[in-house]
C-alpha cells in the first residue's frame, strides 16, 4: 500500500471498490451463479422423460373381404393396413408436411390440408410434403395384425402370414 499523498481525489471520480463492496458483489455474483445453474436445470421441466401419449402398438383383425391394394383404416388410428399376394403391410396416414391425415384413394393418398399427393407406396407425387409416408412395422399373430406406429421400416417390406 502506498500512501496517497498526491492530488486529493475529486468527489466526481469513481470510488475504488471497498472491502465491503467487494464482499457484497461477491455474494451477489455467487447467488446469481447459483440461480443461473438452478434455472438451467429447471429448463428441463417442459420436456418430460416419458411423453403422455396413447399406446403406439395395436392389433387389428383385417376383414376377409379386403381386396388387394384396398386400404383398411382401423377406427381411431391414422394408419392404413393393406393385404395383397405378397403379404400384409401398413402405411402411416400422417402427412409428412404438417401432420394432417391423408385420405387413401384408388391409386395413392391425398392430403386435404395443402394438397400433397402420395403414390400407393407412399412416395411424394405432388405438393409440399418433404418426405414419403413412412411404412410401419407389422407382425401377424393368429389372424390378427399387430401394427407398431412408432417403428418405421423400409418401404416395400411386406409380412406374409
Amino acid at each position: 500500500m502506498t500512501p496517497t499523498t498526491a492530488t486529493p481525489r475529486s468527489r466526481l471520480d469513481p470510488e475504488p471498490v471497498a472491502r465491503r463492496d467487494f464482499l457484497g458483489i461477491a455474494s451477489l455474483a455467487s447467488f446469481l451463479a447459483a440461480m443461473l445453474f438452478a434455472g438451467l436445470g429447471v429448463l428441463r421441466l417442459p420436456k418430460a422423460a416419458v411423453l403422455a401419449s396413447p399406446a403406439k402398438k395395436f392389433s387389428v383383425a383385417l376383414p376377409d373381404s379386403l381386396a388387394a391394394g384396398e386400404a383398411f383404416v382401423p377406427p381411431g388410428r391414422s394408419v392404413a393396413v393393406f393385404r395383397d399376394q405378397e403379404g400384409v403391410y401398413a402405411v402411416s396416414l400422417i402427412c409428412t408436411h404438417l401432420g394432417c391425415i391423408v385420405k387413401p384413394g384408388q391409386s395413392g393418398f391425398e392430403c386435404p390440408c395443402h394438397g400433397s399427393q402420395f403414390a400407393a407406396d407412399g412416395s411424394v407425387l405432388r405438393g409440399p410434403a418433404p418426405k414419403a409416408l413412412p411404412w410401419l412395422a407389422v407382425s401377424v399373430r393368429g389372424g390378427e395384425c399387430v401394427v407398431d406406429e412408432s417403428a418405421i421400416i423400409p418401404a416395400g417390406t411386406k409380412v406374409s402370414g
Binding site: G76, R77, S78, H97, L98, I101, P112, C113, G115, P128
Partner: peptide, 26 residues
C-alpha cells in the same frame, strides 16, 4: 377428431398469409 382433418383447416385470418406460403414448403 384426431382422425378426420377439418377441410380446409384454416388458422386465424392473420396467419393465413403464412399458411398460403406454407402450402409450398413448410
Amino acid at each position: 377428431n384426431p382422425s378426420v382433418p377439418e377441410n380446409p383447416a384454416k388458422a386465424p385470418w392473420y396467419f393465413l398469409g403464412l399458411q398460403e406460403l406454407v402450402a409450398y414448403s413448410a
